[in-house]
Amino acid sequence: MDYTLRELMTICAAREIKNGDIVFCGTGISMLAAMAAKNINAPDSVIFFETGAIDSKLEDIPLAVADPRIMYHTSANGGLMEAFCTMQNPMSGARIVGILGAAQIDLYGNLNSTVIGEYDAPDVRFSGSGGACDVASFVSRSIIFMKMEKRKFKKKLDYLTSPGFLDGPDGREKAGLPPGGPDKVITDMGVMGFDEHTRQMFLIGCFPGITPDQILDNMEFEIRTDRAVEIAVPTQTELTLLREKCDPHGLIL
């Protein structure tokens, strides 16, 4: 079957979303994954934006989290205060799944979306946290999109923007953060999870044609690969709904 890597990654993320989940999404592929879940496997999931829109109809794909397309046919149009309070509140926060991306990730799923190099004199400056640090601090689990490259899977981050498990199993508790943390990392070569005891990243599975060694070759740190299986490819139904219902004009795919 013909599909692109981007389509496969989007479908993999969508499959992680269940009915009843409240899905926080950012821009680009994360927004598309939330739309795909809603159209394919989790029609009763709720799409939610940090800008304050909740349960947007999304007749047309938004290109930013402040796109007016997210304001149409919502349960409520609020503002940033409402959105972040919904995440910080443990009653609603426990139902929220965050979808994030970053420039760098480490073994414990901490993310950098701020700088490469020194903070005061960066080699490369990125957008910064936006709401990502808030989401990573508050919500029960997050799904992270990453491209497999050595310079992105780092032993030590240049800047820790958004907390994963920080330095280990009790990292979040020591720092004073609520429980939660990263759940899956979806890359262009396979999918990773986090061990429930060590909180370290491990390989869940490879995409067709990819070996665990190829994945390790694209990381600066080692992860366990002994539990890896092959990831199921998208079905025709998944692909059709993704292409025709979610992004018919190919704005993100």
Binding site: F84, Q88, N110, T114, Y119, S129, C133, D134, S137, F138, Y159, L160, T161, S162, P163, L166, G171, R172, K174, A175, G176, L177, P178
Partner: peptide, 11 residues
């Protein structure tokens, strides 16, 4: 509670 343990606080 946002940003505890991160460089937003440290740097």
């Amino acid at each position: 509670r946002s940003s505890l343990g991160t460089d937003i606080i440290n740097k």
